[in-house]
Write a protein that binds this DNA or RNA. Structure first.
Lengths: 197, 197
DNA sequence: CCACGCATGTAATAGGTTACATGATTTA
DNA sequence: TAAATCATGTAACCTATTACATGCGTGG
């Protein structure tokens, strides 16, 4: 249901399903992901419900495009969603779940590698976000008043992505340090608390 | 699919569906959420697949309980999942999505309240996590070597929850400060970049 | 001429939520 | 005796993923 709302938000300017997928993969990747096939299904549903209308547009390069625009009804639905209280407590963070149970592998070296890989991914991501920030919101770093309301909100959202990534990277570093100490050959009395086996 | 894996992880000790729901609502809430009905369905599926077996246990208080335990096959499946690379790029953060589009409401005061409400929720959560930390992992704050492998991994996961919440709270504060400046009556030349209307 | 990017879609399946249905025991 | 907690489950529905199917135009 939220994908539908996000599509309505993205369609403040008319776009095709394909355009929307690119928008997801660029601007909106840090808070939502969607497959192209799901986007097409959502668009069809929204049009059936009268929240969108579409027209087929012949393109100079490539096949015809179905371009969707939002209707008054769609705008009302978007506004309703935006007035909803923030949804909460439905986190699904697969890699933390894996880590939580990873003791059953009895291989701290593997745990360390897992966290290192996470750190690499987080760094990759934060670089993308930071590039967007300097390229798109450079001016606001000193002074917000030069931003439109739209860009102001988008920049707030981007900051959430950046600050979350920073925290996750710090967490990885803290974790790796602890794992290293625990796993180091210096700790001679390792049988002390070791359970099982 | 991941819920199935998490249930297998949680079932290192036998438990009923109801027990598992409580485990979710307490220990595992910061990385995964699940409804009771979905837990029952997952348990049935896992038993059909031979990853779990169950027996009915007559309880002194309340109705009979169906207690599940993990099989060798289940343990193999759990280990396979734990060797998978961390899943990535499937974030779904509804409240950031809302904020991202909230400019269409043309009401910065509402944006501010939204972020304040988020902050309150985050604070509520972090207090829970911190209580778990001091109550359960107090000893490790100075010295990890006193922790079992199991507790060590669980504490790493909890730290991720705490550090993420800290970052989100800081973000809320940064955002509220910026919104206040932008929304203050001091800013006389607000027509400068305002678009639409 | 082939691979790649553009572009749209369907079908099968899996995963998850909400509502519904049931009933025992304990505590106020 | 009424409400809360313990306890298990089904049915209807919705959402999302994966795989499949198709085909144009451009650049190498």
């Amino acid at each position: 249901m939220s994908l539908d709302n996000i599509l309505l938000g993205l369609l403040s300017r008319p776009a095709s399903g394909y355009d929307l997928k690119t928008a997801f993969d660029h601007g909106s990747r840090y808070f939502w992901a969607a497959e192209l096939s799901q986007i097409y299904l959502s668009l069809q549903r929204l049009e059936r419900e009268g929240c969108l209308r579409s027209k087929s547009v012949t393109s100079s390069r490539g096949p015809d495009r179905r371009v969707y625009s939002i209707t008054a009804r769609g705008r009302r639905r978007l506004a309703t969603w935006l007035m909803d209280p923030p949804p909460f407590g439905q986190e699904r963070i697969g890699y933390i779940a894996q880590l939580y149970f990873m003791d059953v592998l009895k291989d701290l070296e593997r745990t360390r590698e897992f966290v290192c890989e996470l750190r690499r991914k987080f760094l990759e991501r934060i670089r993308i976000y930071q590039r967007i920030e300097t390229e798109t919101y450079e001016s606001s770093l000193a002074d917000d008043s030069s931003l439109s309301d739209e860009d102001f909100h988008r920049h707030l959202a981007l900051r959430a992505g950046i600050m979350t990534m920073e925290a996750r990277i710090r967490w990885c570093e803290e974790a790796v340090a602890r794992i290293r100490v625990r796993n180091s050959p210096t700790r001679a009395r390792r049988a002390g608390q070791k359970k099982g086996e």
